[in-house]
Design a protein around this nucleic acid. Structure first.
Lengths: 338, 338
DNA sequence: TAAAGGCATGACAGCCTTGTCAAGGCGAGC
DNA sequence: GCTCGCCTTGACAAGGCTGTCATGCCTTTA
């Protein structure tokens, strides 16, 4: 119950006005060092913490950052929360989570939240980050937001992304370094921006290493297990099949593994398989999947950083965007070309 | 920017005092029905939402429920959040998530949160729910809390649990009914209370059916895929291996499947595998895993319900505790003993 | 018919902090 | 020595709501 300590008591103990205490608390300038120290001592002695409600009522900050999500994978959600909180704690901010239901009227869900609870910023995860209705409401309410790995309309707002092109490039290079020259590729859903980027990285790596990109060894997929399965059937049911397949995401790579299994093509002895995303499923299969890990916690931390730094609403310039490093996770599904 | 609507405008539009608007908002008695309707219309017309900061500053409620967790599985965390929010939204409450780091001084992490941000209640998930330091701080600050599946000191506070013993008993009985008599068991993390309960259910079922519990067929695990993998290696790399393995959670069961796969032991023909928790991974593997489903969302909703109903601090009686039903999910990983 | 009690409502203070503005102190420049 | 301007500090209002208490009116009771 020690939460009863208010700024008045700190002021009394340190012999200054409450306003000066407030100045010290908020690191405002124009406080003599002597005074500052005295106040800080009083704060420590009383174990005083400013009341967030009063602060946000009186001032402009709410000390709350929202995380909106709609049913991406649980692992993703928790990583985002962990990453964001790491940065928020440093500045006394708290995280407020708001699961959204994209099936329903999202704007109608978001709008009341923003009215009742002022948030200093919001982090949007896929797929909500591409929901125009949400972005509209956020902008109408004047709430800064950062999108994680958005697909569309990149210029619209601040965002944090990963370098898909380079990641795909390096994964391809990894396969090449294992001696593969004929590497099949399964593209992702054509409407997801990442699909093009990953394909681009693959093509570039092949060219840079002097290997041709055979059109019949590139298949269209839709990011689903099934589409990966079907694409793999086309790639593998032929005499001149590739010795490695790079799928644009893990689910499709799992589909490839299923086909390999069915064809009794040992992985990685007869066929190397690489995925993308490092979903939990990547570790469940055997052999475990070589894939690309997104630094989700770091991305969320970067998003929080943009929000706290107030760097989300530049005037003339393009909105700030941070590009983070990925990690190549080499496991057992890739091996030397037989 | 329509967030500028205040209670005063509603009062003006409906021709009453702000206090009466407040009464209607908070469903207080002593308001003529006529008046109530008029106010509600004004609220709707202006799209008014009370400001949470002002409310919590002036009144006794904060409209915030905390969820403290420390690194349980991501799926668990998200389910808890989803379940809790479902109940909280109904009453205009928001969820504030606070990951804790059990390695460090937990009390030191919790105490400042509670000072700055008043919370009307806190939901504690395992393993934080058994951290005495956390409970102490919570009680010292007078913050009501509900524990999900606590292990120790059940009488200390309100809690929501599932009958782990009975669930493990029934799963074991299920295996026995399939003709298995030699059933291996992989224990969970020794510091998680559920581990003991699940083991207890297994032992009881074995005894009740007249089958011995072979000590060398019981292995210690840590709830991780890897620990399940290693335990399975010990259980299966021997001539007198069990015909079924019951792992205390799905991750470990998945580890068992991986080993079975590697040893070319067909599941369920040569080996039945059962898990616990029904995590997403249970449906990803093939064959799909027989497991026990905890009604996590329902449990979290029940916890929120206890908090919102204020039923957490009974005077003379034992603290309220809700016991929810589990569900045995029989899929393809268990079959008749070969 | 008068007194008592209950209900519906409003005026006002207070919650705890920040923002605004004014005031006092002090050194620099003339 | 005086004015100017900067630095430091404080008084007070504001922020939007709920709690307390008072008021007026209507119904019940003796």
């Amino acid at each position: 119950m020690s939460s009863k300590v208010t700024i008045h008591e700190v002021a009394r103990l340190s012999g200054v006005s409450i306003k000066t205490v407030s100045r010290v608390l908020n690191r405002e300038p124009n406080v003599k060092n002597d005074t500052r120290v005295r106040v800080q001592e009083a704060v420590a002695a009383l174990n005083y913490r400013p009341n967030i409600s009063a602060r946000s009522l009186a001032g402009s900050k709410a000390y709350l950052i929202g995380v909106f999500f709609d049913n991406p994978s649980p692992a993703y959600v928790t990583d985002v929360q962990l990453g964001a909180i790491a940065r928020c704690r440093e500045e006394g901010y708290h995280l407020i989570v708001e699961p959204l239901d994209s099936e329903g009227d999202v704007a109608a869900q978001v709008e009341p939240m923003l009215h009742t609870l002022r948030m200093d910023g919001v982090i949007l995860t896929p797929p909500v980050c591409d929901n125009v209705a949400v972005l509209d409401v956020l902008e109408a309410e004047g709430v800064p937001y950062v999108r994680l790995s958005p697909d569309q309309d990149l210029g619209r707002s601040a965002s944090v992304r990963m370098d898909d092109v380079r990641a795909a490039y390096e994964m391809t290079a990894h396969l090449i370094s294992l001696g593969h020259t004929d590497i099949g590729f399964i593209k992702g859903h054509p409407e997801h921006g990442a699909s093009h980027l990953r394909y681009e990285g693959y093509v570039q790596a092949m060219k840079d290493h002097g290997h041709p990109v055979r059109e019949d060894h590139v298949q269209q997929g839709w990011f689903s297990f099934r589409s990966g399965f079907e694409a793999a059937e086309k790639l593998l049911n032929r005499p001149d099949r590739p010795t490695a397949i790079f799928a644009s995401n893990d689910d499709m790579a799992l589909g490839v593994m299923a086909v390999a299994n069915r064809l009794r093509l040992e992985v990685p002895e007869k066929l190397s398989v690489a995925g993308f995303d490092d979903t939990p499923g990547a570790k469940v299969v055997w052999p475990q999947l070589t894939t690309v890990r997104q630094p989700i916690q770091a991305m969320a931390a970067a998003a929080a950083d943009l929000l706290l730094g107030g760097a989300t609403k530049p005037e003339g310039d393009a909105p700030p965007s941070r590009l983070l490093d990925f990690e190549l996770v080499v496991r057992e599904s890739t091996g030397p070309a037989g």
